[in-house]
Amino acid sequence: MRQTTFLKPADVTRTWYVVDGAGMTMGRLATEVAAVLRGKNKPTFTPNVDCGDFVIVINADQIVMTGNKMNDKKYYSHSMYPGGLRTRTAKEMKAKYTVEWVEKAIHGMLPHTRLGDVQRRHLFVYKGSTHPHAAQQPVEMKIKG
């Protein structure tokens, strides 16, 4: 008889991955990174335990969107004051707020719970090709597309 094993938080082993975003499509990159942050790429995945890995995304300024999404896609935020709605296009987000642009795409694919808040902290996004996490010896992660 088979028995389902559940991972305990003390038994989690974490790996650091680095993803090069140069020429990657935003959606394909975001789905793969979100799965690794959750730990869904591991056979020991447990939904209620933070069993995901750390992910570093470099060259975020070279990530692309297909079609006309750069002009058509809009990002909304509200200050909670009357008339406080702020609208930005994807083109403007990429030009001025590159790191937040990538983080917003990945964060939207994680759970919107306390567990998701912990998993969000395992993502590091950088505009250029350098990052300060060399001491963690990150492994390069290949993503199709």
Rank of each mutant, 00 (worst) to 15 (best):
H112F: 09
R2V: 15
L115M: 08
A135Y: 07
Y76R: 05
P132D: 12
L110C: 01
G83P: 05
V18M: 11
E103Q: 10
Q3K: 15
Y75Q: 06
G21C: 04
R86E: 14
R88F: 08
P82M: 03
L115Y: 11
R121P: 06
D53L: 01
M65Y: 10
F124K: 01
G21P: 06
V64C: 11
F45C: 02
E140W: 01
S129K: 09
A60M: 07
T31H: 13
L37Q: 02
T98E: 06
H133D: 13
W101M: 08
D11I: 07
N71R: 11
V12K: 13
A134E: 07
L37M: 06
P47H: 02
A134N: 10
L29G: 01
A34Q: 06
I106H: 00
N68C: 10
Q136R: 14
L85C: 01
A60L: 09
P9T: 06
R120T: 10
P47E: 05
N48C: 13
H107N: 08
T5C: 14
M65Q: 15
G108W: 07
R121S: 08
T87N: 05
Y126M: 14
K127Y: 10
M141Y: 04
G83T: 07
V12E: 06
H133I: 10
W16G: 14
A10K: 10
R14S: 05
A105T: 08
G23F: 14
M1R: 11
G84A: 05
F124R: 03
Q3F: 14
T5A: 13
R38G: 11
N68W: 10
V33Y: 07
D50W: 10
Q136D: 11
E92T: 06
A22V: 10
T113S: 12
G108P: 04
K94G: 04
C51T: 07
K74H: 09
L123M: 04
N41P: 02
K94C: 01
P138Q: 15
K42M: 02
V49D: 04
E103D: 00
D72K: 07
K69S: 04
A90G: 05
K40L: 04
W16V: 08
C51V: 09
A35N: 14
T89K: 03
I58C: 02
T98K: 03
T25W: 15
Y126N: 13
P132A: 05
V99H: 00
R14Y: 11
V36M: 08
F54L: 09
P111N: 08
D20K: 02
A60Q: 03
L110F: 10
T98Y: 09
Q62M: 13
P132T: 00
E103W: 04
G128M: 02
T15N: 14
F124N: 07
Y97W: 11
G128F: 04
C51Q: 09
L110A: 08
E103L: 03
V49H: 12
F45Q: 00
T4Y: 15
T25C: 15
P9M: 04
N41D: 02
A90L: 03
Y97I: 05
